[in-house]
Nucleic acid binder design. Sequence first.
DNA 1: TATAAATAGGATAAAAATATCCGAAATAAG
DNA 2: CTTATTTCGGATATTTTTATCCTATTTATA
Lengths: 145, 145
Amino acid sequence: MFSKACEYGIRASIFIAKNSYEGRRVSPKEISEEINSPQAFTAKILQALVKNNLINSVKGAYGGFEIEKDKIAAIKLSHIVKAIDGDNIYNGCGLGLETCDENHPCPVHYKFKEIRDGLKEMLESTNLEELALDIKTGIAFLKTY
Amino acid sequence: MFSKACEYGIRASIFIAKNSYEGRRVSPKEISEEINSPQAFTAKILQALVKNNLINSVKGAYGGFEIEKDKIAAIKLSHIVKAIDGDNIYNGCGLGLETCDENHPCPVHYKFKEIRDGLKEMLESTNLEELALDIKTGIAFLKTY
DNA sequence: TATAAATAGGATAAAAATATCCGAAATAAG
DNA sequence: CTTATTTCGGATATTTTTATCCTATTTATA
């Protein structure tokens, strides 16, 4: 569904959000340990999220990554996905045709459209706050063990 | 959503189904031209579909690929996807966790489950016959131009 | 100002997906 | 039986994705 980079990016964002609520900045090292992802690769993805203004980075001693508390509820999964994987998952043809629309549909165009619209709706209506809360209360997890 | 291989595989299967209805076997060359895909790569994918008993191949002169007319309506998109991409799209975690279920869910487990179940239902209820018919009647296409 | 700690970012490596090439094996038809 | 045609399958190449490494830059604090 998503690229590895995007999976890591979402998990990292949730972890950062959770810690930002608690007033803590986190480092790529801590993030990658807590979400079980390769550290340097995760750091690269964080850079992309910073550039897209989804998370903040603070350089230097006592620095790290954080999200402004005010913004956490406003950041939707769709923002993260778009920043990392682009919007192909929304607009792309299910069978890979370069142009596929009502005027020139692939054989599964309308059936796929329903699925994609459902996914889009879900990603656009799910925000980091609720997901971070599930981690905080321990009803959901960001790694296996 | 799907790999390139899977996209080609679905498009190829639809094209083969359409031609099988008309009693024609088709070659990888003709297939790749009509679905606009790399020929040798497409041929490899066809081999996989043959091994999974989704399509038939006939070697030698006047050979090619075909699907028994009786079987066309029974072949679902899910069969093709499973043969090429496996069932990760059904069972895999949206955030890439190795184990993610009701007992140990990722933060988007239930939301993703809905989407995936919808996708699964769609793939399992869509068969090659209806798709091939849309190509035959010209209301849908397997390539852009 | 010096130092330690931290992100930024370029260069590179490894792995996986995509794609090509070519000889072997099978088969229909002459 | 021979020949032409066609799929099969292994080897290889290319591209993209994933991952690592190392240095530069920034910044808080002593």
